[in-house]
Design a protein around this nucleic acid. Sequence first.
DNA 1: AATGGTCTCAACCGCGTCACT
DNA 2: TAGTGACGCGGTTGAGACCAT
Length: 242
Amino acid sequence: MGRSPCCELEAHTNKGTWTKEEDELLVNYMTLHGQGCWRSLPKAAGLLRCGKSCRLRWINYLRPDLKRGNFTQEEDEIIIKLHSLLGNKWSLIAGRLPGRTDNEVKNYWNTHIKRKLIRRGIDPQTHHPLNGATATAITDNDRICLEFRSPTPSSSGTTEETQPHSQLQDKQNTANAVNLELSIGLPSNSTSLSKVPGQFFRPVVTPPPCAPVLAKALCLCWRLGFQNGQLCKCQTRNGLYR
DNA sequence: AATGGTCTCAACCGCGTCACT
DNA sequence: TAGTGACGCGGTTGAGACCAT
């Protein structure tokens, strides 16, 4: 597959820290026109930056809905739990933390939480105890169910769409037997896969063949034990959890 | 006050994926 | 089916802030 020449190869593009003037130009443009084609944005906005740089600056720093400031204890715990389930899927983790970006979560993980876990005697990568393998924060069976319910990288559709029925049945049985309810809802065929941060875990309108899924099971915060917390933005809308 | 080490986080880089032709 | 263009993600880097001596 051919890749487009990176825009940073273009002449006359600035790099490094953004100036106040550049920020203003980008904010003004985004306010007026909203998010569109990043590649053409710099020229349209009068910026000497590549589109990639503009996108990053907007998403990680200039977006109006960003929550600045320290992470709360509740956010810490959510990150730790989600990381134990998802690994380094920073965008997915950030999607469950309103106002936080993947870059912010990633940095926070690397600078704070890693150390915090090590102090607790937990391996930050495996979430297993550092001194041995007696107890596990997450089991292999957890992963089986998660992987089953998560989109496969090689597929543009859902897992259910691409797997033979017999394989699905096997995994159904596994999931049902384990019944860890670590369900992550996939967008249904009738709804497009949202790329908006925070909306990845959309409800499965038609319950997948994995198991009879209750509405509550679709709320990841609920599954993680944060259903009563302020950070759980999942709420029923037309009877669905989102 | 000066210096050197450490930490933080904004920004960059390269690659995978998707949509379109 | 293959090629192309663009976006998004995760890993890495480096400048500046902070701290200890």
